[in-house]
């Protein structure tokens, strides 16, 4: 059984173990030789003409594992998928990062990878929305766009000699504020078609970063600030007003109402529960946990208690078994 760091009573331990065993039995990929360690033998049918992929080697006519992980079979290809605890970026991934440095024509972002990512000024939409060459003035005003410790959403553009490059050339990317940033193990966030979610009934936004950073915040209407008519050269040279120095009226406008803040905290705690249990983080499951906590009239802080975690595990086992029956 997975080691779960929770203060559980004996009854809760039994219930949790039962739920996890049920989930394990429902898992489609469970087969006797799925998990291997280094030098373990991998059973293959040599008559079929096996292709030996990553993490495998031939030793005295026998296929052995050279990595610790799970054996995957795709047609004739046999390879070992390493159990990753660290995020491995791929082009097109939606990531959330925190600005650690404002450098020359670029921002450096911490994205839970073993290198800092680079977001170039040219890979970023300007605040005035005009498509133009970046000037020295734009470079001076970089801190008006993002400064240190800002949370930014971006997309992986590619790998260059100086590191991992990101881009944020769309209205859905950019600075994230009025919310919570959560960190979970990256393998719990699977690559999906949609990583930006709007939970209408709660008025909150949820961004599942492939790098294990999850953003839960107040819903912001994505407005396209692309200005069609060209701004004169003199206008473009004007310094941007410092967005960090806002007036009291603007602060009041930006104030998040208590109800929304409660929903943000509920969603964040739902993610924390899933992370504790080691379940994949998806929109449906998060919604289910929020609904469960509301139906039980549970306080927000009680969602992190042992009883609720056990309950979530049981509900997830129920949900998966009912899905399997439907199939």
């Amino acid at each position: 059984m997975r080691e779960i760091q929770l203060p559980l009573s004996q009854t809760q331990k039994v219930r949790l173990q039962k739920a996890l065993e049920q989930l394990e039995s429902l898992s489609t990929k469970v087969n006797s030789d799925a998990s291997v360690i280094i030098a373990d033998s991998i059973h293959v049918n040599h008559e079929d003409g096996v292709l030996k992929g990553h993490g495998t080697a031939d030793l005295n006519g026998e296929v052995v594992a050279t990595l610790c992980g799970v054996v995957e079979r795709v047609n004739k290809l046999v390879y070992v998928r390493a159990l990753r605890s660290r995020y491995k970026p791929e082009v097109g991934d939606i990531v959330i990062g925190r600005v650690v440095e404002v450098a020359q024509k670029r921002w450096r972002l911490e994205i839970n990878y073993n290198q800092d990512a680079v977001l170039l000024l040219s890979s970023m939409n300007m605040p005035d929305g005009v498509q133009r060459r970046r000037t020295a003035v734009d470079e001076l005003n970089m801190r008006c766009i993002f400064e240190e410790n800002d949370v930014v959403c971006a997309e992986v553009r590619g790998f260059q000699h100086d590191g991992l490059h990101l881009q944020a050339r769309s209205r859905k990317y950019g600075k994230l504020n009025r919310g919570q940033l959560l960190t979970v193990p990256p393998y719990l966030v699977k690559r999906q078609k949609q990583h930006f979610h709007h939970l209408e009934e709660f008025g909150i936004d949820l961004i599942l970063g492939c790098n294990g950073f999850i953003w839960v915040g107040e819903h912001v209407e994505a407005k396209d600030d692309m200005i069609e008519d060209q701004v004169s050269q003199s206008d473009s040279q004007v310094l941007f007003p410092n967005k960090n120095c806002v007036s009291l009226e603007e602060q009041e406008k930006n104030y998040t109402i208590l109800e929304t803040r409660k929903y943000i905290s509920r969603a964040a705690n739902a993610v924390r529960v899933l992370s504790t249990l080691g379940f994949n983080i998806t929109l449906e499951i998060i919604k289910g946990i929020i609904d469960l906590s509301l139906s039980m009239n549970l306080d927000i802080h009680d969602m992190l208690g042992s009883e609720f975690c056990v309950l979530v595990a049981e509900k997830e086992a129920e949900r998966r078994s009912s899905m399997k029956k439907r199939r």
Binding site: I38, T66, L67
Partner: peptide
């Protein structure tokens, strides 16, 4: 080395 996913002959 195992954590770095470097292929090994044995542990």
């Amino acid at each position: 080395l195992v954590d770095a996913r470097i292929p090994l002959k044995h542990l």
